[in-house]
Write a protein that binds this DNA or RNA. Structure first.
Lengths: 207, 207, 207, 207
DNA sequence: AATGAATGAGGATTCATTCAT
DNA sequence: TATGAATGAATCCTCATTCAT
């Protein structure tokens, strides 16, 4: 009985199963080519009708997929970042952890990157709830400004820097997601990237 | 008859016309939605058959489009970069000029960004001749290593840094391509970005 | 247990509830668009399965809907017509009351009109038990002939006239059902229509 | 060559062929059931894609069908009506000719009646360019008022009468379209209907 | 070189119906 | 009785490509 009650509260298993199949499909063939037919086949469904039954449309499915991935990754990242001490360490942890996600959730990261860049609706506008994406830049901008206020960071344009950092992370992740390297090599690159930006934003002594 | 011979050597005017129409169409509606029908209409062609006649397929057309854009932009950038003095100035010029392209060739840049991220072939693999794109990273890596050798740059992982720089440029360009800002504001952002990276890679004094 | 027995004789409450929801749905979105899904939602049912459980199919549901509406309207009309004195008055009452139904039962009338015109079965033949509809013509034909026999009406083709009267009523009702007018205006039109036909069928003096 | 030039001016043969197939299909199975697949099959097309190629959508096709039918019928009716003398005769000719159309163009009439009553777009609004339909009532209203002004007709509500006449015509046509009678019988009914309305609207002598 | 009609596969979506629970 | 998940056919539509002319 509990299972039945739970179904009322949580998403149905089919929904989760479809979302999981969609993630794998997008990771493999890309957003464009991830048709309902392919997703249904991977989910073990006999027809695409079932997907339409559970989701209002492709947009709705992609939204669910994005939420699922962002949720998974965010949860994973937050606890690590919270453990960091000071702005600089927080930023380093953010960069390294974010890049590290490609080791832990390769399919999710590949799918997410594809959705971010490729998923637009009929009007050409980005379709995905860009909240988690744009927020990334917004939150990092705020973070950087905080660091500037406390003197932990130097003088620079916080917004441009935030765009640069997230762009650089994505570029590195994209490269490694499609041309996988071993985890050690990936980690070294992540450390290098964090070093790079920390050097760029550290406070400068005027001689 | 000379005309006929010329056509064997150069691309026909029709091809160029179709490529130009494809660029505009991709810039406007995105790669996904840029169908032969829409491109043909914009090119003033009465049927899509003409496109198939001139190009082996959509992949072939997109390759031609990419080559055209990369060629145009590269030519524009090279002469400016050549004029720069010293590694640091070259890098600054590269960054600022690349970002400036969005002011000079907005449609081309929008189309190129869309193709890079969205264009995959039937198998889901990235379809575009990534040569010009990956080369960008390769060339910049070499450039950075040269600077390290001459002592103009400090110690850092050249490849990771090259990825970071190009990724940051693309992120900034993407943001501005779809949310246009005025040219002055764009230029200020470009200068900030160049400053950021130059600080990050300048030689350090060991105390 | 009595309840159970009663259910065998009368229609179950569920059935009535579904029929009511179907009427409202058809009135609102039309027969074509009135899917089981929409009807179920309006009936507060969680799935369309319930409808299939209670009705043999869509045709069966529509038949029940038609019977319900025709029953409701007929009951309402009969007592008024019975109260009329003489053939002419009966006809006038019939016309005015029938048109007046659109004020009293707007949803039912809209639904009925839609079903009459739009509901065909798989073979394309009109699906609805046309009995109540064709009967309308048949009954009116008989009524007119009676009036001719008694000399209350003149000479005319009773069947053609019956078709004309019912067709005119339906046309007026349709127009007002979809472009609602106030009740007074509707009543004036009904009186005009009755006047029109009574003039047409009154006995003529041969000069 | 002339044929080729003509194709630029006139509608292509395929279009006409598709419209003709659509008319037959609608006449046979009704608007609802007249899917692109059935129309394509009847038109001898191997896929529904060709229909979409020639028409912007189902609405567009139905509009073309309606125009075609209305055009055909109107042309046929106009010359007869123009030949009539006086308002009363014009009205009689209109009624008789309109009903007579069901003998001359049975499929077209059946299709047209079905479209008028059944074809609604997604919002439930009548989809067809109602111009020819509503105009019918409008034009007849004007015609009747003219007759009242000249004294050829008596006192009555012109609009209600126009609705009644068109409604009666449609009812008779519908009945005969789906339950065909021989042409003579149909003609007698048409004459009866005209008689009926002419009696109803003739000028009355106040005693 | 160019046209434009035709193709056929594939796209998402809706629907009535069935069935195990 | 009632649920709700599953089915599979059918809907319109878009697309790249082909082919005769």
């Amino acid at each position: 009985m509990q299972a039945k009650i739970e179904r009322s509260f949580t998403e149905s298993r089919r929904r989760e199963q479809i979302v999981a199949a969609a993630i794998e499909t997008i990771a493999e063939v890309g957003y464009q080519k991830a048709s309902f037919a392919k997703i249904a086949k991977r989910a073990g469904l006999s027809s695409t009708g079932m997907i339409s039954y559970h989701f209002a449309g492709k947009d709705d499915l992609v939204r669910a997929v994005t939420e699922k991935i962002v949720g998974t990754i965010t949860a994973h990242m937050i606890e690590r970042i919270e453990a960091a001490d000071g702005r600089a360490d927080r930023l380093r942890t953010y960069i390294e952890t974010n890049i590290g996600m490609v080791s832990v959730y390769p399919a999710q990261m590949r799918a997410l990157l594809d959705i971010i860049t490729a998923a637009r609706d009929t009007s050409g506008a980005i379709q995905v709830d860009t909240q988690p994406i744009t927020d990334r830049v917004g939150l990092m901008t705020a973070e950087l400004r905080d660091g500037q206020r406390t003197g932990e960071f130097g003088e620079f344009d916080a917004r441009v820097t935030a765009i640069a950092i997230t762009g650089a992370i994505d570029a590195l992740v994209t490269e490694r997601a499609f041309n996988p390297a071993d985890d050690d090599e990936l980690h070294r690159s992540a450390v290098e990237l964090a070093d790079l930006f920390l050097r760029a934003i550290e406070p400068r002594r005027t001689s």
